[in-house]
Design a protein around this nucleic acid. Structure first.
Length: 484
RNA sequence: GGCGCCAUGGUGUAAUUGGUUAACACGCCGCCCUCUCAAGGCGGAGAGUUCGGGUUCGAUCCCCGAUGGCGCUACCA
């Protein structure tokens, strides 16, 4: 069974927003780490900020995780339901003299802070309540006076920890504030709830964003005060936008689920994310495409880099096309069906025809949405003609007439193979004294509604004689926009 | 402002841990292929490793400083 040596990690999102890419990557790294070493991944919802937390956001986070294929072994636990643990922990700290009651009001604090800043002093809490006799404080509290509980930072010395990715990080205690553990309303602050839970859940590794480095000494001090075993901290560099500032809404999509909406294959997104701030090292020289099993096998904390990474949409797009191309049609189909559902599109072909069409189209797909938009003509007769394509290749009435005539050739022809359709068209072109390319381009638009498509004769074979004849003939009645 | 962290082409990462013409991928440009667009093949531009000092026979790699970026600096998480 589980022993002290099996790693226990957690992903602890705050449901104050959807699952964003930074959070997703933290979740991914924790998941890869846990799966790599047969550890346990715990999901914990940090919802102690009642103002900003919501059940919808929790659901959104879970949806994002499921989409990415990240599962967890325990939880989700909600901090809002574990308030007793935090209060007990605060009491323990109080009893051992590591914490004290603070009767300063929020207004007083703000006032003093402003004054300190104005005077050019560091705006740290002045610790005035730290000298109140504990017994006096207890009396004041029982008499109903509102108070918070603050942690008493040691007077001198330093607090340090050995980060698995950044190495030794040290802070002077004089720089650390006597932060609030428990607010006057009895709700814990993040600093208390994280360590109370991390200790209670017996976590061995804390893998989280580098934005928490500065918070870590406050937590280390609590572990020490509580006599709890210190976990390994591993801070992961942040993900930045193209302008190298922290990724935010300004940069466009930051919600993981919006990438699903853009037609990204989840496995591609995961692969892309894994390589943002992590590298499998030179043993995997020149390789970038890794399935989830490979990522799990390869993942290690020491492959995590220290510098922030810029999120590059072009690279993501490349991963996406690679995955679409590599997936067998059967694997792509359910993902495509989702797009069809969302678009309200119903394919009017047999399953085999659909699979064949997917195989034909996937080398040219940029994302999953293409199958519900520009590729519709391959799955149904209900599709639209791209006006630009029509204008470009079907403006010429003579061409349209020839295509109509060509459709008769196909109709009466015996064979209808890739080779025969091409031979027929080229012979027809020569006979009519027109360049084959003109008829090919025109046919392409007539058959697919698009100027871009796979090789025309492969398309014909895919559509079948009936449809080809019918669509080519239909073109003669078409009057292009702007055509006179 | 204070404290902390980081720094390799535009982007993501490599460089057997001091010895390489600094590699690969994305992106970009050109050529080939060609019925369109991709793909593919071939070729190219783009960093002397932010800058300045050290240490060393020798620094991307070690030390110091500067600069820049990011993070933290709440009774948010």
């Amino acid at each position: 069974m589980s022993s002290a040596s099996t790693p226990r990690v957690r992903f602890a999102p705050s449901p104050t927003g959807y699952l964003h890419v930074g959070g997703a990557r933290t979740a991914l790294f924790n998941w890869l780490f846990a799966r790599h070493c047969g550890g346990t991944l715990i999901l914990r919802i940090e919802d102690t900020d009642f103002e900003r937390s919501s059940e919808e956001m929790v659901e959104g986070i879970l949806v994002g995780m499921r989409w990415l294929g990240i599962d967890w072994d325990d939880g989700p636990f909600y901090q809002s339901q574990r308030l007793d643990l935090y209060r007990q922990t605060a009491e323990k700290l109080l009893a051992s003299g590591h914490a004290y009651h603070c009767f300063c009001t929020k207004e007083e604090l703000e006032q003093r802070r402003a004054a300190a800043i104005a005077a050019g002093r560091p705006p740290m809490y002045d610790r005035r309540c730290r000298s109140i006799d504990p017994n006096v404080a207890a009396e004041r509290k029982t008499s109903g006076e509102a108070c918070a509980i603050r942690f008493a930072i040691p007077e001198g010395g330093n607090t340090s920890f050995d980060d698995a990715v950044f190495g030794r990080v040290e802070f002077a205690n004089s720089e650390i504030e006597d932060f609030v553990l428990l607010r006057s309303d009895g709700i814990p602050t993040y600093h208390l709830s994280v360590v109370a839970d991390d200790i209670d859940m017996r976590l061995t590794h804390i893998i989280r964003g580098a934005d928490h480095i500065s918070n870590t000494p406050k937590q280390v001090l609590q572990y020490q005060a509580l006599g709890a075993p210190m976990p390994v901290f591993a801070h992961v560099p942040l993900i930045l936008g193209p302008d190298k500032t922290r990724l935010s809404k300004r940069h466009g999509a930051t919600s993981v689920i919006s990438y699903k909406d853009m037609g990204i294959v989840p496995e591609a997104f995961r692969n892309f994310l894994a390589l943002l701030g992590w590298s499998p090292g030179p043993s995997q020289k020149d390789r970038e495409i890794f399935g989830s099993d490979e990522l799990i096998q390869l993942f290690s904390l020491d492959g995590i880099s220290k510098s922030n990474a810029v999120f590059d949409n072009d690279k993501l797009a490349w991963f996406n096309t690679e995955y679409i191309r590599a997936y067998p049609a059967e694997k792509l189909l359910p993902l495509i069906e989702e797009e069809w559902d969302r678009a309200g599109f119903t394919p009017a072909r047999s399953r085999d025809e659909i699979l064949a069409a997917i195989d034909l189209l996937k080398p040219r797909a940029r994302n999953l949405k293409d199958f519900a938009t520009v590729f519709r003509a391959y799955f149904s007769d209900d599709f639209e003609y791209d006006p630009a394509a029509v204008t470009k290749f079907l403006s010429d009435g003579a061409v349209r007439a020839l295509l109509s005539e060509l459709s008769h050739r196909y109709a009466v022809g015996a064979d209808f193979t890739e080779a025969s359709t091409e031979a027929t068209l080229r012979a027809f072109a020569e006979e009519k004294g027109i360049k084959a390319g003109q008829l090919i381009n025109g046919s392409r638009v007539a058959l697919t509604g698009q100027a871009v498509a796979p090789s025309l004769f492969a398309v014909m074979a895919q559509l079948g004689k009936e449809r080809v004849v019918q669509r080519l003939a239909a073109v003669d009645k078409m009057v292009p926009i702007g055509d006179v």
